[in-house]
Amino acid sequence: MRITVTVNGEQHTRDVEPRLLLVHFLRDELGLTGTHWGCDTSNCGVCTVWLDGTPVKSCTVLAVMADGHEVRTVEGLAHGAELDPVQQGFIACHGLQCGFCTPGMMMTARWLLDHNADPSEEDIREAISGQVCRCTGYENIVRAIRWAAEHGGGRGTADAGTEPAPGREEVRA
């Protein structure tokens, strides 16, 4: 089946089997290997990407379902050479160790800050509760997201209280 998916602002057209999972489409077809695959029951969340501005577990989405839609992955998180405040926060607060959960965690963190510029510790823990980390004990991930909020990362202030429409989210190449 022929599909066209916009990933990090760039259109990709491929012939794929209908059963192909989005996570494998991103990794194997497009070579975007920052998105990982950690379980087979949709629990771990290391495959989290944005589909039309909403975090999804890409192991639980078929690639064909993304046809005509926009996907954003960890590779599209930085603004050119400049890291997103979320990425800076993860480095500054030691929010990663092996790095395997990191791409998915950061995608959720970015989404959270877009919708809640000043999240409490509880908000953060709730937001990332669909994602497992085996290295950090979560403490420094929570701190990293707080750090990002306090260092220009809480860009949700502008549209506080309003839910962005699907696909409205600006995608940075």
Partner: peptide, 16 residues
């Protein structure tokens, strides 16, 4: 950490 630069960009190289 020196490692972080590649991991936060999705540029680590794991076996898969």
């Amino acid at each position: 950490r020196k490692e972080d630069a590649r991991f936060v960009r999705g540029h680590g190289t794991y076996v898969d």
